[in-house]
Amino acid sequence: MKLPPFEYACPTSISEAVALLASHGGDAKPLAGGQSLVPMLAFRVASPSLLVDLRKLAELRQIRITDNGVTLGAMVRWREILDDARLRTAHPLLVAAVEHVAHYQIRNRGTVGGSMAHADPAAEMPGIAVTCEAQIAVVGKSGARVIEAAAFFQGPLMTALRADEIITEIRLPQWPAKRRFGFQEFARRRGDFAMAAAAVFYDEDAGKLARNAHVGAIGVADRPLRLNAVEAVLDDNTIDDSIIAKAEAAASAAVDPADDIHSSGAYRKALIGVMVERALKGAASIG
């Protein structure tokens, strides 16, 4: 459980970081908070020839809140999100989800960009990005580009990121003050990866009908999912017990999780329904 040999670089600019990554032809890895990568090195399931430490890239550590939404620098740590009082109104769903991320020590080091790049299907941040239709800004040797969250995650630990690219920002669209939302997660122990989690939000029109419903599911597929079938159940309806029951059933029906050593697929399939139900009840202030 000691790290394999590797070269280490700690660039002070993004362009330098990108050049370092490009120079190793796919065999270099960016190091953000190290909360996933370092254990993988210790287990020797990853052995890059070069680690490019991003910790000195100050421009990646900013949280910007504008009329267009919330922009999280890739090196923003979980603790900084929880400590930023502005985010409780600027993006309460993000804050609710981040409260479930790992444990105290890990939240002090783990980063938003690291979690996105690692792409664990049970992690909260990728789920929030997909649910909220975030844009992921990246930069590589051929320049900067923006990837939609829905296209970013391609499978367990697989993303659209190229070997020479690093994530710079995660852009979450603007959050209306009166938006209703809920986040529910079931984990074996507080802070563990989700057995299943649901992120939901919708806006209400003057007649209290749901508009623009977004429902995300975490931990029930090879990547975070938007559950369009559930959103269709919610949109243009009053969110009451009967609609929530339909949403619960639709959520379970929409996923087909595989069995693993900890749980049957059937369990997770039922669980995501319960998480959607409870998140919606929270959003609608029912029960």
């Binding site: 079931f186 074996r188 057995m195 900890h262 749980s263 049957s264 059937a266 369990y267 039922a270 669980l271």
Partner: peptide, 11 residues
């Protein structure tokens, strides 16, 4: 007794 196992027993 894990939640998944218990869920199976309840079901």
């Amino acid at each position: 007794v894990t939640p998944a196992r218990l869920f199976g027993l309840i079901a």
